[in-house]
Amino acid sequence: MSRKKVKQTTQTEILYKSRRRCPICYGLNGDTDIKKGQIAHLDQDSSNNDFDNLAFLCFDHHDEFDGKTSQSKSLQKDEVKKYRDDLYQIFEELGTENLPDLEVFEENTNNVERDKLEFDVYQEKIKIYREIRKFLGLIIRDADIEIKDMIEFANKTDEAVFLFDKDISKLIAEIYHQASQLRYTNKRLNSRYLDVGRERTRIAEENMELLNWFSKTTKELKSHFYPYLSL
């Protein structure tokens, strides 16, 4: 292929975006010093002057990348392009003042990813808290609970075991058990076969104790979740 001269405007744009820093120096060594160098064709086709195919490299890395030694050194086109794009991004976001080295930049990137993960986990915790509050609200409102609501509650709080310590999983299990007991006592009290007497009184008292338990648990719910949801 015959060599085509890179347009002056293109050269200027590359030098500006790179600030005459070599992306290979930066990518491999975290070196952000200004270098003497020249523009390289990343696909090693000197007739391909597309902007994306060009990068400013220091003389040493230009010779290494263009020469036969590039095979032994494993300097590949996509690798160099990635170093170049990372360097461009840094200059676009931070400029040249207080330019971080590679380790600092990667650490900041990891921190952003970790913060996002923590936010996503927090959102899942909030969902479970709201499902429990909703379930307790139904019981307080109706003094009873439908089986479909119990199934929905179990499904929507199932992942709590992965997000909280054992105390929350234990609380959820206890709420479900007490809800089952409440359904049972209500069913017995509504049965036409349960006559007035000691058994009916005992079940009515148990039913009232359960409702009091749900009222108390609702009031204490925030304190159970405070260690996990406070910011």
Rank of each mutant, 00 (worst) to 15 (best):
F65H: 09
F65D: 08
F65K: 07
F65S: 06
F65G: 03
D66F: 00
D66I: 00
D66Y: 01
D66G: 00
G67S: 01
G67E: 01
G67C: 02
K68C: 06
T69V: 14
T69E: 11
T69G: 03
T69F: 13
Q71W: 13
Q71L: 14
S72P: 07
S72T: 13
S72W: 13
S72F: 15
S72D: 14
K73M: 14
K73I: 14
K73S: 12
S74G: 09
S74V: 06
S74I: 10
S74P: 04
S74K: 15
L75F: 13
L75C: 03
L75N: 05
Q76S: 09
Q76T: 10
Q76N: 10
Q76P: 05
Q76E: 08
K77L: 09
K77C: 12
K77R: 12
K77M: 14
K77F: 12
K77S: 11
E79A: 08
E79P: 08
V80T: 04
V80I: 07
V80W: 03
K81F: 05
K82L: 03
K82D: 04
K82W: 03
Y83A: 05
Y83L: 01
Y83F: 12
Y83S: 02
R84I: 04
R84E: 04
R84K: 15
D85Y: 06
D85E: 09
D85V: 04
D86M: 14
D86F: 14
D86L: 15
D86Y: 14
L87A: 11
L87C: 09
Y88H: 07
Y88V: 04
Y88N: 03
Y88L: 01
Q89V: 07
Q89N: 12
I90V: 15
I90T: 13
I90A: 09
I90D: 06
F91A: 00
F91H: 09
F91V: 00
E92A: 03
E92N: 05
E92S: 02
E93S: 04
E93P: 01
E93A: 08
E93Y: 07
E93N: 06
L94C: 04
L94Q: 06
L94V: 00
L94W: 04
G95H: 05
G95D: 04
T96R: 06
E97D: 11
E97T: 11
N98D: 13
N98L: 12
N98V: 05
L99T: 07
L99G: 00
L99R: 00
P100E: 02
P100W: 02
P100M: 05
D101T: 09
D101V: 08
L102K: 15
V104D: 08
V104A: 12
F105W: 15
E106R: 11
E106S: 08
E106C: 08
